[in-house]
Measured scan of single mutants.
Amino acid sequence: KVTYHVPNEEFARKLYKKAVDANLNVEIRVENGQFIIHIE
């Protein structure tokens, strides 16, 4: 399980798409202006 803290929405979207394309379980949320992405 990996967690990324991404300040940039564009990068967060790319990361999310890559994980989904790889059939990984992804959860994304915004906290204090940062995008928190959990990948399992």
Rank of each mutant, 00 (worst) to 15 (best):
E9G: 03
F11R: 07
A12M: 10
V20W: 06
V20K: 10
V2P: 08
A22W: 14
P7S: 14
V30H: 06
K17R: 07
V26E: 00
E31H: 08
R13V: 04
V30T: 04
Y4Q: 06
G33C: 09
N25F: 09
V30A: 05
K17V: 07
G33P: 01
A12G: 04
L15H: 03
A12T: 04
Y4H: 10
H5K: 10
A12S: 01
K1H: 12
V6T: 15
I36H: 02
N8E: 07
A19R: 02
E40Y: 14
K1P: 08
N32R: 04
E31A: 08
N25K: 13
V26G: 01
E10A: 07
H38L: 15
A22M: 12
Y4M: 09
A22H: 08
N25G: 06
I36N: 00
H38V: 15
N8A: 04
V2F: 11
V6S: 11
L15Q: 02
V30M: 11
K14V: 10
E9P: 04
Q34A: 09
F11K: 07
Y16L: 09
N32S: 05
N23F: 15
L24N: 01
F11Y: 12
K17E: 13
K18I: 13
K1A: 09
I28H: 00
R13K: 12
L15C: 15
E9C: 15
E27W: 12
I39T: 01
Y16K: 05
Y4T: 07
N25D: 08
V2I: 12
E9F: 11
V20M: 11
L15E: 03
N23E: 06
V26A: 07
E31L: 09
E9Q: 05
I37S: 00
R29D: 02
L15M: 06
Y4C: 15
Y16G: 05
V6P: 13
Y16R: 04
E9T: 02
N8K: 02
G33F: 08
H5G: 03
E27M: 07
R29H: 11
I28M: 12
R29M: 06
V26N: 00
N8Q: 03
I28A: 01
K1F: 11
H5T: 11
Q34K: 08
T3Q: 09
K14H: 09
A22K: 05
K1I: 07
A22T: 03
N23Q: 10
V26R: 00
V20G: 02
